[in-house]
Amino acid sequence: MQILINIILTSFLYFIIIISFTNIYTPSHFFSLTHAAVITFGAYFTYMLTAQAHAPLWLAIPGAIILATAVGVSTELCIYKPLRKRGATPLIMLIASLGLYVVLQNLISMLWGDDTKSIRTWEVKVGNEFFGAYITDVQIIIIAVSLTLFVLCLLFLHYSRLGKQIQAVSSNEELANIFGINSDRVILLSFAIGSALGSIAGILVSLDTDMTPTMGFKLLLYGIVAMIIGGVGSYWGLLGGALLLATAQHLSAYYIDSKWMDAVAYIILILFLIWKPLGFSGRRLKKVEI
């Protein structure tokens, strides 16, 4: 039972990261690795506002989300948009985003130091018992928040005007422009939504297990693996990808050794790339580059 709870918890965590990342990936068609820094910024801004500026948590969390979103949006405005205008390929954008990630991560190290920071002020206590397993309050919040975000994103993408525009730009940017959709605006907005979701993920993780300047990158890598397993294009496929990855990792840690968790994740990735490159959902995208 405890394993089951751990798997569910991890997969929901991965899941928020995937939906935040696909939000950026689908319209812009490149792997924005700076997203890892945005996740980390979410956590560190919360730390800044609570521990350093002494704001209450309910105020600090929205504040941190806004600040981290601003970071994400400004990367799009200052770096990616000019690059796109000059006809940069997704590979160039990927490398640019990697460089930018390194800069931002070092900025975090410089501002707050490399040691572990914690926004936890409450006492560590035994979790709530649930059929013989234990789950803490924060972990329940993580699951609840991800479920809510999942439903909201589904509704948003399928029923709102902007959601449909994002889908249009994802499938064919030029055609969308012809139909009068401003693709730059759509990409900017999807960056904003993705960054906000990413920073929420970062904050949730830091509430559960504290923060370090490199926390975002590892989370994002798992997110990307789960995204490829799940297949871009359907949220249900992505949920499946997150569940599969989390299950494989936890079972390998339990039955083999926890040093194999990463290896198992990447073995699954390679297997999927060979036999099912489009992932679970198997939907073909118009453009799948990199």
């Binding site: 394993i3 751990n6 297990t209 370090t212 936890h250 926890s258």
Partner: peptide, 8 residues
Amino acid sequence: GQIDFKSI
């Protein structure tokens, strides 16, 4: 750098 030790 591992964070989640629940399986262990």
